[in-house]
Design a binder for these strands. Structure first.
Lengths: 117, 117
DNA sequence: CCATTAGTACGATAATCTACGTACTACGAT
DNA sequence: ATCGTAGTACGTAGATTATCGTACTAATGG
């Protein structure tokens, strides 16, 4: 096997769960971390699509990679490459279909808790 | 110190966070565990008030205590003694005031995921 | 070709979490 | 007073998680 992978699309492969594979506990766990909740919050508020670097998170690059992977594997975000940048967006349609009102309630709660009143 | 505590009320003290102290991340974390999600689900569906033993959870007594404490300290449930039984109920009013729609969305999602269609 | 940029993979470490058993306490009933 | 019931407290083992640094890769631009 000298031709390991066709390297389809933009070159790098990203594993996403299918809609039916998304589990409630996993989604809640993904959103229970402050860094990841903030990522979801920023994706929801204005920046529907963002590269990882644009978040300016208070953690190292590799920790950042880790958190985006947790969100992606939980089914909270969808990622694809654009050049060297990995763009992320919320899977609002899938989550809404599976767990109606859940994501929007979390995001609204996030706004209330983390923004000055 | 021979009179350690007034032992008020039903005898044993239980620490609950005030409404303002309840944090979104902590609530999500509390609900992200399968056992605790199930507890919340059973409290929501018919048994507004239940003793710990009545849940028949597939874990030991001490683990059971642990999970109820996580839920209580997160602000998800309120507990009080009735004889030797510790009764639990969801803090629906507090959670609804803080995070509107969140608890009901989680519970509805739980019903969809964990009950046969 | 070389440098830069954006991000991954791997390995380590420290913290946190879940689970358990054992010993204990508080209440109610006999 | 003693017993059973419901649950806690404590110590601990094992798993998972968050964090980091270092080394690497893939795309873009000189």
């Amino acid at each position: 096997m000298h031709t390991p992978e066709p390297t389809a699309g933009s070159g790098r492969r990203l594993a996403h769960p299918e809609r039916e594979e998304i589990r409630l506990e996993t989604v809640l766990h993904a959103l229970a971390d402050p860094i990841r909740l903030r990522i979801a919050g920023e994706l929801a508020d204005g920046h529907t699509e963002m590269a990882c670097i644009a978040f300016e998170l208070p953690v190292s690059k590799s920790t950042c990679t880790h958190h985006f992977r947790v969100l992606r594997e939980a089914g909270v975000i969808r990622q694809h490459y654009e050049g060297t940048a990995r763009m992320s967006r919320l899977r609002e349609d899938d989550l809404e279909a599976l767990f109606p009102g859940l994501l929007s309630a979390v995001l609204e709660a996030y706004r209330r808790s983390h923004r000055p009143v």
